[in-house]
Simulated assay, not measured.
Amino acid sequence: MEPVATGAPVTLKDVAKASGVSISTASRALDERGTGSRSAAAAQVRKVAEELGYRRNSFASSLRRGETRTLGVLVPRLSDTVMALMFEHLERAASDRGYFAMVATSGDDPDDERRAAETLLDRNVDGLILATARLDDDLPRRLRQRGVPHALVLRTDGESPSAIGDDEVGGYLAVRHLVDLGHRDIAIVTGPDFTSTGIARLAGARKALAEADIEARDEWLIAAGYGIENGYSAGETLLGNGGENRPTAIFAANDTIAMGVIAAAHRHRIEIGEDLALVGYNDIPLSARLSTPLTSVRVPLDQIAATAIDLIVNPGKEPHIRKSLPTLIPRESSGTPKHFPR
């Protein structure tokens, strides 16, 4: 292997010459977009490149192809556990396909969201993934009009490419579980009514109630935000009126809401899993580590992330709205039939 001049940057030509192959062969062997050839020649090229200290300028090569191999991810906030986990899975799925994912946060204001999207587009990303939640959000329509590749994740507007969990099935599984335990006094704390997730989870919950011939009580259907304070406030409303006029079970439309309900129940000396059955949604890692582990509907975030990336990098496949099935994970918080109904 011929040495490279000291101080000179190692080029692809240097790697090809030292490996005894053409420049095009060396380029294919070092192309990070694919899984890489398993041939002996390709392995030799990669070995030589490492020994010489060659660093591929993937940004420059992508620009020559008219792309940056970069995707922008827009989330309301990374302090939300589900959003943080979602971005991690999106980043991993993008990397597996030879892309880099960068994130921007937008809060809940539509103007802030548009500005964050433009910031990402100014960096020449090849597409946008939107994890923002509002159904009245105008950004997806604007992106469609401009022909910007994009996908919605964990929610859908019914038109843009979307990778979502089947939230109606998830809501059904949660409440069906409570019905099967013998409950009829079931409250539902949904997500915001401006989100597709909140609407679909409530629809599934209502379906399970209807099948069991249980009429939902209006005062036990509470639309809330997805934060822990929203869950605490809903818990106070449902549990603070005395033991004779409260539900025996609550379905909370995400695990953070459920944790707020737990805090309210503790304040009123109500034991989760003994006096009150509780089911959450998303099955974030903390759910299984609570003092009373939380029954939750697990959403396959990794599968959803991979689907969202593919909707951008491999467009044109049907359907453009793809749903992943959730799974109920029973734990102590929903109790057992011997405890319920009271």
Rank of each mutant, 00 (worst) to 15 (best):
Thr6Tyr: 15
Val10Ile: 10
Ala16Lys: 03
Ala16Gly: 04
Ser22Met: 00
Ser22Glu: 10
Ser24Thr: 12
Thr25Asn: 05
Ala26Asp: 07
Arg33Glu: 11
Gly34Val: 02
Gly36Trp: 08
Ala40Asp: 13
Gln44Asp: 14
Glu50Tyr: 10
Glu51Gln: 15
Ser61Lys: 14
Ser61Asn: 07
Leu63Cys: 03
Gly66Tyr: 02
Leu71His: 00
Leu74Phe: 06
Leu74Trp: 04
Val75Cys: 03
Leu78Asp: 04
Leu78Cys: 05
Ser79His: 05
Ser79Trp: 13
Thr81Met: 13
Val82Asp: 06
Met83Glu: 14
Met83Gln: 11
Ala84Gln: 00
Leu85Gln: 14
Leu90Tyr: 01
Leu90Glu: 07
Arg92Ala: 12
Arg92Val: 14
Ala93Trp: 05
Ala93Ile: 00
Arg97Gln: 15
Gly98Tyr: 06
Gly107Leu: 12
Pro110His: 13
Asp111Lys: 15
Asp111Arg: 15
Asp112Gly: 15
Glu113Met: 11
Glu113Arg: 14
Arg114Phe: 06
Ala117Gln: 07
Thr119Lys: 08
Leu121Ser: 13
Arg123Gln: 10
Asn124Lys: 07
Leu128Pro: 00
Leu130Tyr: 05
Leu130Glu: 08
Leu130Thr: 03
Arg134Tyr: 06
Asp136Ala: 14
Asp137Arg: 01
Asp137Leu: 04
Leu139Asp: 07
Leu143Glu: 08
Leu143Tyr: 05
Arg144Ser: 12
Arg144Pro: 02
Val148Trp: 14
Ala151His: 04
Val153Cys: 02
Leu154His: 12
Arg155Tyr: 03
Arg155Asn: 14
Thr156Glu: 08
Ser160His: 00
Gly165Cys: 15
Gly170Leu: 06
Gly170Tyr: 03
Ala174Gly: 10
Val175Pro: 02
Asp180Gln: 15
Asp180Glu: 14
Leu181Ala: 04
Leu181Asn: 03
Ala187Lys: 07
Thr197Ser: 13
Ala203Ser: 13
Ala212Met: 04
Asp213His: 10
Ile214Gln: 00
Ile214Ser: 00
Ile214Asp: 09
Glu215Leu: 11
Glu215Ile: 09
Arg217Cys: 08
Asp218Gln: 13
Trp220Met: 01
Leu221Asp: 03
Ile222Glu: 08
Gly225Arg: 06
Glu229Cys: 04
Ala234Gly: 03
Thr237Lys: 12
Thr237Arg: 15
Leu239Asn: 10
Leu239Pro: 01
Glu244Asn: 13
Asn245Val: 10
Arg246Phe: 03
Phe251Met: 02
Ala252Trp: 09
Ala252Gly: 00
Ala252Arg: 11
Asn254Asp: 10
Ala258Asn: 01
Val261Arg: 03
Ile262Phe: 09
Ala265Lys: 00
His266Trp: 13
Glu271Phe: 03
Glu274Phe: 10
Asp275Pro: 02
Ala277Trp: 12
Leu278His: 11
Gly280Arg: 08
Gly280Asp: 06
Asp283Gln: 08
Asp283Pro: 09
Pro285Arg: 07
Ala288Asn: 04
Ala288Ser: 15
Leu290Gln: 00
Ser291His: 10
Pro293Tyr: 10
Thr295Asn: 04
Pro300Phe: 08
Ile304Asn: 02
Ile309Cys: 09
Asp310His: 06
Pro315Met: 00
Gly316Tyr: 04
Lys323Asp: 02
Lys323Trp: 05
Leu325Ala: 13
Pro326Tyr: 12
Pro330Lys: 05
Arg331Lys: 09
Glu332Cys: 01
Glu332Val: 09
Ser334Asn: 02
Pro337Ser: 01
Phe340Ala: 02
Arg342Ala: 14
Arg342Trp: 00
